[in-house]
């Protein structure tokens, strides 16, 4: 169903949880089209609303964070008829797939960069909302790109920034256990360096968040 006259969908390059990603041609440019598929498991009202608002948010946020020097793909078009986000195609691989193939010093360097870029976002009150090693792309010439901003928000709250760091921390622990400590340490150190002393409260809050979802005595819960 292509209602967009200027785009040719070429082929599917990836089927994510939310979206299908196509390589395509927009005018004569090689682009990536992120299509948020309808989700039949949820009711239509909710599905339509979620797909539409996330497509809008992602388009807006890609533009906003780029202005804060966070490396993200350039956005070409937000097509709300199709729920398409048309952006620059980044040739590279997911950090998730690369992390075990590089040496320790390179990993350190990447995570320092990542920490710094997250600080750029947070200093400007942008929350990514889904920081994982699947949502960071590394190019052949070692450039870092952040993608997948559909769950992002704007917030000044310590809590929200802290949850963002908690998400990347947990994915490192669960998926890349053997590199967890070195990577997270590099990330946090450079985050602190970039963010300054105001980051202390944010970092301290991570542990509180971690302990929260766990078994809380039921009489203290909302009973």
């Amino acid at each position: 169903m292509n209602n967009n006259p200027v785009i040719d969908l070429d082929r599917i390059i990836y089927t994510g949880a939310e979206a299908t990603l196509y390589k395509g041609k927009w005018f004569d440019k090689e682009v990536l089209v992120k299509h948020r598929r309808p989700k039949k498991y949820r009711i239509e009202d909710l599905d339509k609303k979620l797909r539409r608002t996330r497509t809008i948010i992602e388009g807006k946020m890609l533009i906003s964070v780029k202005k804060c020097n966070v490396p993200v793909p350039q956005v070409f078009e937000v097509d709300l008829n199709n729920n398409w986000l048309i952006m620059k195609y980044i040739k590279g691989q997911k950090l998730k797939d690369l992390i075990g193939k590089i040496d320790k010093s390179k990993r350190k360097w990447y995570f320092e960069q990542i920490g710094k870029y997250i600080a750029f976002m947070h200093k400007n009150d942008f929350i990514h909302g889904d920081l994982t090693t699947s949502n960071i792309i590394i190019t052949r010439n070692e450039k870092i790109f952040f993608v997948d901003f559909g769950l992002s928000t704007k917030s000044i709250k310590i809590e929200d920034k802290s949850v963002d760091l908690h998400l990347i921390k947990r994915v490192l622990r669960s998926t890349h256990g053997q590199y967890f400590e070195e990577c997270f340490e590099s990330l946090i150190n450079s985050y602190k360096l970039e963010y300054g002393s105001k980051s202390d409260e944010i970092i301290d809050r991570i542990e509180t968040i971690e302990s929260r979802g766990r078994y809380i005595e039921k009489n203290k819960r909302k009973n």
Partner: peptide
């Protein structure tokens, strides 16, 4: 994953 049952996601407040 890596020798134990890892948590990938959970509630941030109540169950």
């Amino acid at each position: 994953e890596s020798e134990s049952y890892q948590i990938f996601g959970e509630t941030l407040d109540i169950a």
